[in-house]
């Protein structure tokens, strides 16, 4: 069973594309894109265990830091730059996204929605920072540095004059078609910048 976000991303990407996966984790998505979409892909990952796992999947991956390592790439080197569940973990979001848009013709960003209805209930009724299936971390051990909603991200793109070409919203492995900021626990955006 392939994760829904991977399926959505794989459907967006044209076969044979050049792909850079920023925060590629264990390399599952890159391996999928290589096998199913015949992509030439490479990844950057900060965790050494994940780098070794990704190498085991037969993908090219460099142990590195998104906040530091993106300036080497030439403009529009890749057809797609992917930031799936990793943008909220970097320090300098604006710089990383700016670099991603510079390097890639299109940027695919996947973010968790911190304002999903489950989270809102927990804040409102329990008075505690939410812990949900999609965001299972406690406040003291979360790898996430930024907490944003799908709406926040849409506003951010508007402010930065980034075009959202396409957006897909999901909750617990199903697509969400209305009231995404309330009912979707994550979203995938296809971005371009003129």
């Amino acid at each position: 069973m392939i994760r829904l976000d991977y399926t959505i991303i794989a459907d967006i990407i044209q076969p044979g594309s050049r792909v850079l996966d920023l925060g590629c984790g264990n390399g599952e998505l890159l391996a999928l894109l290589k096998q199913q979409r015949n992509c030439r892909g490479t990844g950057i990952e900060i965790d050494d265990r994940a780098v070794l796992n990704a190498m085991e999947r037969g993908v090219s991956v460099a142990h590195g830091d998104l906040d530091r390592d993106l300036d080497v790439y030439e403009d529009k080197r890749f057809d797609y730059v992917i930031l799936n569940e990793s943008l909220q973990q970097v320090v300098n979001i604006e710089k990383v996204l700016e670099d991603a848009l510079r390097i890639g013709s299109k940027v695919i960003v996947g973010i968790p929605n911190f304002c999903h209805i489950r989270g809102r209930f927990q804040i409102f009724f329990k008075g505690q920072v939410p812990v949900t299936p999609n965001l299972p971390y406690k406040w003291y051990n979360t790898p996430n540095l930024r907490f944003l909603s799908l709406k926040d991200f849409r506003f951010f793109c508007q402010e930065k004059r980034i075009t959202i070409e396409k957006a897909c919203y999901m909750s617990s492995g199903e697509k969400v078609l209305w009231q995404s900021n309330l009912f979707a626990d994550s979203g995938i955006f296809v971005l371009t910048k003129a």
């Binding site: 490479t42 050494d48 780098v51 070794l52 190498m55 090219s60 991956v61 460099a62 142990h63 590195g64 390592d69 080497v72 790439y73 030439e74 080197r77």
Partner: peptide, 21 residues
């Protein structure tokens, strides 16, 4: 090592890199 990795990446060469603990 990172300097080499950066140059190879800039050239679009397939390169994998790991700093081992």
């Amino acid at each position: 090592s990172r300097e080499m990795v950066r140059a190879l990446k800039a050239n679009d060469t397939d390169v994998s890199y790991i700093e081992i603990k």
